[in-house]
């Protein structure tokens, strides 16, 4: 590019009258030119643009694996789906009821055992009380009892 043309383009550039193509031309030209006192300021500016343009991630931040694999739709008939759901629900319900019944039976057995144990303890306690009350009472000896001395 001739110097005169560059001057004209730069003049247009600073007035924001250049097209993108012209701006690319200026950038390309100034980046190749050796240091020239007449365009030091312009070069600084375009070098700053160039620097910023080089910023970018080395790694891609967001990717989605694109596979050609087609997903297979399982085309079960509706009645089969309903039947499967019904069986599943029935099974779960039965399991729940069964579990509840077992739990209730176990609780009843435990309660019965506790009651039996309490009754046994109570009868033992009564027997001991009775024995204690009769402990100091004189007892009659049988007629044929032999006494010493």
């Amino acid at each position: 590019m001739e110097k005169d043309k560059l001057e004209i383009l730069l003049e247009k550039y600073w007035k924001a009258e250049t097209t993108l193509a012209e701006e690319k031309l200026i950038k390309a030209y100034l980046s190749k030119q050796a240091a020239d006192e007449s365009h030091t300021g312009d070069k600084d500016w375009f070098a700053a643009i160039q620097d910023f343009s080089e910023i970018g991630h080395d790694e891609v931040l967001f990717t989605i694996e694109q596979k050609n694999r087609k997903s297979v739709m399982l085309g079960y008939p509706v009645w089969l789906k309903i039947a499967a759901v019904t069986i599943l629900v029935s099974g779960l319900t039965w399991l729940g009821v069964d579990y509840n019944q077992k739990l209730n039976t176990q609780l009843e057995i435990e309660a019965l055992a506790r009651r039996t144990a309490e009754e046994s303890l109570m009868s033992m306690s009564n027997a001991l009380n009775q024995a204690y009350q009769h402990l100091n009472e004189p007892t009659e000896l049988p007629d044929n009892a032999v006494t010493e001395n």
């Binding site: 993108l20 701006e23 690319k24 600084d44 500016w45 070098a47 700053a48 643009i49 620097d51 910023f52 343009s53 080089e54 910023i55």
Partner: peptide, 28 residues
Amino acid sequence: DLMFRFNSLTSKLPDIQRNILHLREIEE
């Protein structure tokens, strides 16, 4: 480092002018 020169030259511009400048100069 790469941002420094551009930012120091444009830091005093109003945001809208700086954004437009970026879109034109950097992103073309």
